[in-house]
Design a protein around this nucleic acid. Structure first.
Lengths: 355, 355
DNA sequence: ACAAGTCTTGAGAACGCTCTCAAGATCGGT
DNA sequence: ACCGATCTTGAGAGCGTTCTCAAGACTTGT
């Protein structure tokens, strides 16, 4: 079974099967109106020769590029890499993206783009021109960057905005941040906690706002206060340390904290340990993200599992199905789940008198 | 600054600058023999119009595809994803790959391929035909899969074999596994440990063998025995648990273990905890990989840091520079480092009498 | 100032595919 | 059986780039 050196083209197949190029093309692309008998004959030739259409040529001839481009924040991704924090977003995006793309004969590419830079347009524009992707997936904080969404809309490239439900062009896809925060808060309230604090993410990420909203709503429903129980971090470990300290300094009666990232939650865990607070005996902790690191801490953390892979997968499907000018109305939501581990427990009885 | 709807082509630039297509092409590709004055004029037109050459068209016209394909093991990657273990390989590959590729105007794509499947050739062949990459990066265990390396060699596609120094086609690149294991073992010997065990990886990965060799060499140099101190796992947590138990059951005098993955090391940590052994007081632990999870365990693990990103980066550079029939002789090695945390310490004094 | 080079520029084909359009084959209704 | 409609197939152009090759402009040495 010697293999050809030269690439097998559609022409070789046509010749082998004794039909025209066009017919082969129809068979390859599952086009209509080909007699079954002929279709089989052509398919046999394709299999025999091991023909696979060239992506570049397909793109050239004005059809699709079969490429979905995923845009991630360069600054954050690089920082995560540099400090060997692990990039759960990229990881999960790839999981959902690659698998779903390959099911449809598409490919996924990852591009790092600076949101804050003033040449976003040039940078992203160059990538779009070079790749001419059939769809683009925007991750936070790009999802609500007007410069980016406008550029994409103008070029008529279908795109999904992950972690955004704001109006505007593109398909908005949320991961139920409001609901997830509500879920976590309610769970803590059920466990008897009365003073439930939150360490939120930066306001540049609109998901930060929703998480705060979900937390407040749950507190209100349980008749609990939220005043003074909110601190803001930047998702990083150090900011988590600062926020946890401030929170516990100001509110010694806090018995539960929800942190908007795993890193910040682990930082809070460390702060608690320093102060002789036992988790979950004295303090319950819930984090957002559920990256691999929270499974091996002492204790392992209860966490909100963000369905990134599932969301990206849905996004890919939407993009592949959608015509450039499809209706971009419906917000698509994939709900997050709560993974209970050992960092949550009943509110300490001793504190009920203290509070 | 209204943007064109239609794609800017080389023709538009040529027209704008009043030159031929060929001249624009030369300017874009930094070709020789263009008068500086003309070059500037064309460049100005390119900037003004925001022209970026289409990857697809470039590929079509017989030049390079500007794509480097990274091949990862599907089975392992999917398992890591499914169990939310984090895929450090993919992560680090992307770090080194994307950055270095973009510096040279290239793109990186990740493809998952089953090593064990009998249709590897068809699967990989299809990807190669569709993408026509300028280079391929093979990660373990593909790096030494004859089916794959032969296919690549036959198609004359330059490729790098990461984690392999076996002879054969392709550029072999090792991450100094022998040296790293030697380093870790020697360090433990210096700390006074006399019974240093190893939990190795599966033999399908040739790096497993080198690590064992490095460990044996260091032991021999220190005049220490290795008999009965070797267990084999599959890199996963459960296999680590089994291996650690067997090891400690058979050799109660073992005071140090080197595990060939972070997961297996964390499993050993758990086994030690179950048996009332304090780490590092009673047992020292060193793991391979240094993924993010080992920083938050109790105690954080001392680990060998595998320079995956750096290695892939070097590989990309080699591939871009190399002609299809370059000399594939020299093995390129990027040395690993030891990151000391709190899972290693002096050998317990009490045991010196016991051993 | 002239021949023999070297530089600079352009014209046209080629890459592999899909699109549009037209021609021939087949079908259904009367 | 006949006519119009529908199916099936093929021919040829075009996508945006780079390649090859040739022509013109400029050097240089004598």
């Amino acid at each position: 079974m010697a293999r050809v050196r030269k690439t097998v083209t559609i022409r070789d197949v046509a010749e082998d099967a004794g039909v025209s190029l066009q017919t082969v093309s129809r068979v390859v692309n599952g086009g209509p109106n080909v007699r079954p008998q002929l279709r089989d004959k052509v398919q046999a030739a394709i299999d025999r020769l091991g023909y696979v259409p060239s992506l570049a040529a397909q793109r050239m001839s004005g059809s699709r590029s079969y490429i979905i481009l995923a845009i991630n924040d360069r600054e954050r991704t690089l920082a995560d890499w540099r400090e060997r924090r692990g990039t759960d977003w990229v990881d999960q995006m790839l999981l959902g993206g690659i698998l779903t793309c390959s099911q449809h004969g598409y490919r996924m590419m990852v591009e790092l783009v600076d949101t804050h830079s003033d040449h976003v347009e040039r940078e992203l524009g160059a990538a779009l021109s070079a790749l001419q992707p059939d769809g683009v997936i925007l991750t936070p904080p790009h999802s609500e960057n007007r410069l980016i969404t406008d550029l994409l809309a103008e070029r008529r490239i279908p795109f999904a905005r992950i972690g955004s439900n704001a109006p505007g062009p593109g398909i908005p896809m949320t991961m139920g941040d409001e609901g997830a925060a509500h879920l976590a808060t309610t769970r803590l309230a059920e466990l008897g906690h009365r003073r439930i604090a939150m360490i939120a993410g930066p306001s540049a990420y609109s998901l930060s706002g929703w998480r705060i909203e979900g937390w407040r709503r749950a507190l209100a429903e349980a008749g609990l206060p939220h005043e003074g129980l909110l601190e803001v971090g930047d998702f990083g470990y150090e900011s988590g340390t600062r926020a946890a300290r401030t929170l516990l300094d100001r509110n010694p009666d806090v018995t539960a904290i929800i942190a908007s990232s795993d890193q910040m939650a682990l930082a809070a865990l460390e702060v608690a340990r320093d102060r002789g607070l036992s988790v979950p005996h004295d303090l319950s902790l819930i984090s957002f993200d559920n990256t691999p690191i929270v499974r091996f801490s002492q204790p392992p953390l209860t966490a909100i599992d963000q369905p990134i892979a599932e969301t990206v997968s849905r996004a890919v499907e939407q993009l592949i199905a959608r015509a450039p000018d499809g209706d971009d109305d419906a917000v698509i939501e994939v709900a997050a789940g709560l993974v209970e581990r050992s960092s949550t427990g009943p509110a300490p009885a001793t504190l009920s008198g203290r509070a």
